[in-house]
Simulated assay, not measured.
Amino acid sequence: MGGIIWLASYPKSGNTWLRVFLHNLLLNTNEPASINNLNSLTIGSSNEYWLEKVTGRPVDSFTEKEVVALTPKIHRAFTRLRSDSVFVKTHNSMSKVHGVPLITPEYTAGAIYVLRNPLDTVISLAEHFGISLDDGIDMLNDKHSVISSDTTQTAEHLGSWSNHVMSWRAVNKSALHILRYEDMLYKPEKAFGGLAKFLGLSPPKFRLKKAINFSSFDTSRKQEQEKGFIEQSDKTDRFFRVGKAGQWKNILNDDQISRVIDANFDVMEEHGYLQNSKIGISRAG
């Protein structure tokens, strides 16, 4: 039985990119790994399959409180999948709901947290959920934000962007690796090389470069265009949208930028996301 290495992030922050990279690095095939086979190596914590597997009952037969109460049993089931660590994707914050930890400590071996500028995150978030930018900002800033359950997924409890980031920062430093989306984009060998080192891996340089190339945005988007992507939202016609940083400068208006920054000032500043603001925004007041 192994422990869980959480692949954690706020939605639309690069978690899928991380998973695609891990598949290509670990499988080491001669062609890009299929984006529709990610669950074979990096499973999703909110997939209703696991609730049904553990209980033998359909998701709609449970209340939210009952689902949360079963969290430790589901996490234990994850650890029994492999003799060593298992990668599990989550958008949950590291918090408690109905007194139950959403991330079970005794089954946790470590975490990789993908961090992205919330000014860009909110643009992808709004398109993914089929909502306006202003509603996306409300979601990003809401301390009680939740992705509701549906026919395939159990609910995920996010909180605000800042609360989400800080909750995962509580993980023991030796067991936590923070991966910035912007570094994945502009400094891929350093970013992904650091990730490999955190996992105790020392891939040859050519293998690391191949995994980076095979998991590039253009490669994944091409796969989606040719074969579709099973994780695509029914609110949009594509999952892999643009794959760039800094779009907010041309898409968000000054009021929208202010709303994101004012609600997340401290955490954005700590992670270097206020250095290139196009307008002089400081703490509200």
Rank of each mutant, 00 (worst) to 15 (best):
F62A: 02
T63V: 09
E64Y: 12
K65G: 10
K65D: 15
E66L: 03
V67P: 02
V68P: 00
A69W: 08
T71D: 01
T71P: 01
T71E: 00
P72S: 03
I74R: 00
I74L: 00
I74M: 01
H75T: 01
R76Y: 08
F78C: 02
F78I: 02
T79K: 02
R80D: 12
L81V: 12
L81S: 14
L81K: 15
R82Q: 15
S83L: 11
S83Q: 13
V86L: 07
V86Q: 03
V86K: 03
F87M: 05
F87V: 01
F87L: 05
F87I: 03
F87N: 01
F87K: 03
V88P: 05
V88A: 05
K89C: 04
K89Y: 06
T90M: 03
T90P: 02
H91N: 07
H91L: 05
N92T: 06
N92H: 14
N92M: 09
S93Y: 04
S95Q: 14
K96H: 11
K96N: 10
K96R: 13
V97P: 01
V97C: 06
H98P: 02
H98Y: 15
H98D: 11
G99N: 06
G99V: 06
V100A: 03
P101K: 01
L102A: 04
L102R: 05
L102P: 02
I103W: 02
I103A: 11
T104A: 01
P105I: 02
P105S: 04
E106N: 06
A109P: 03
A109D: 10
A109L: 12
G110C: 08
G110H: 05
A111Q: 07
I112G: 05
Y113N: 10
Y113A: 07
V114L: 04
V114W: 02
V114K: 02
L115M: 13
R116V: 09
R116K: 13
R116D: 06
R116I: 07
N117G: 03
P118T: 12
L119N: 05
L119M: 15
D120W: 03
V122A: 05
V122G: 04
V122K: 06
I123F: 08
I123M: 11
S124Q: 09
S124N: 12
L125R: 09
E127A: 13
H128W: 14
H128F: 15
H128S: 11
F129L: 12
F129K: 10
G130Y: 08
G130D: 08
G130N: 09
G130K: 08
I131R: 11
S132M: 09
S132Y: 09
L133Q: 10
L133R: 14
L133I: 14
D134C: 07
D134N: 14
D135T: 12
G136F: 11
G136T: 12
G136E: 10
I137L: 08
I137W: 08
D138Y: 13
D138K: 14
D138L: 13
D138N: 14
